[in-house]
């Protein structure tokens, strides 16, 4: 990967000047929005971070599940559920026969899969360049209550459920994950809606004393 070729799809929504830019996985991203104390405080209330730089890989088709299994990937059994691979990467089953795989922080599973042998019949590559978010905090349900009309409380979400719904009028994929000792929600949306959705969610986060924070607050690999 050469640096500076990739820019996070959310870039347009980030403020100019006050934030610290950096490069993660070859993608230009904001690594810090405010001072680290303030970011930690925001995270308590309602933190939102850009995780778009995590490599993604997708396949669909009637033989997609089998092929992934052949590659040693853990395949979630149920439609609309997710599983974690040993290396921390995520495997989301989107409906019945489509899969989204996202690298673990620092991982490179997706690059490997992309280079894997020619796909057999019934396995079709799906390019993924979504904008991707991490959300957490005490007020996260209040954000959901404003942007989404379905019940996303932990009680309502099954443990490993993947939800395809709409946030503020935009289609998203959502899942919930307890990681590094805290409850986090992951959200993906089409990259062209990334800046818009960031602005909406970061705006609501601000109203709840939260706001944008660097990804290092969530993944210690990027501290």
């Amino acid at each position: 990967m050469q640096t500076e070729k990739l820019i996070t799809p959310i870039a347009h929504a980030f403020p100019v000047g006050s934030v610290a830019w950096g490069v993660i996985n070859g993608m230009q991203v904001v690594t810090r929005f405010v001072g680290s104390d303030e970011e930690e405080a925001r995270k308590e209330f309602l933190g939102i971070a850009d995780a778009s730089f995590l490599g993604k890989f997708g396949v669909k088709g009637r033989n997609a599940a089998q092929w992934l299994q052949d590659q040693g990937i853990v395949v979630p059994e149920q439609p609309n559920s997710w599983a974690g691979n040993a290396d921390g990467s995520l495997v989301l089953r989107l409906g019945g026969s489509e899969f989204l795989i996202e690298n673990a922080p620092g991982g490179n599973l997706c690059e490997k899969l992309l280079k894997a042998d020619a796909k057999p019949a019934g396995v079709y590559l799906v390019p993924h360049v979504e904008a991707s978010f991490v959300l957490s905090g005490n007020a996260v349900q209040e954000l959901f209550a404003e942007v989404c009309s379905i019940d996303l409380t932990r009680a309502a979400l099954g443990v490993q459920e993947v939800v395809m719904t709409q946030f503020a009028g935009v289609s998203v994929v959502l899942m919930h994950q307890d990681l590094e000792g805290e409850a986090r929600y992951r959200v993906w949306c089409d990259s062209s809606y990334g800046p818009y959705l960031w602005e909406v969610m970061a705006g609501i986060a601000n109203e709840h004393s939260g706001g944008p924070i660097g990804i290092g607050n969530y993944f210690s690999a990027y501290k």
């Binding site: 609309n80 409906g95 009309s149 719904t165």
Partner: peptide, 16 residues
């Protein structure tokens, strides 16, 4: 808003 149940994704408001 009325609810509709997608056989794959479950019950959702009609706006989806």
């Amino acid at each position: 808003m009325k609810l509709l149940t997608c056989p794959v994704n479950g019950t959702r408001p009609l706006s989806e």
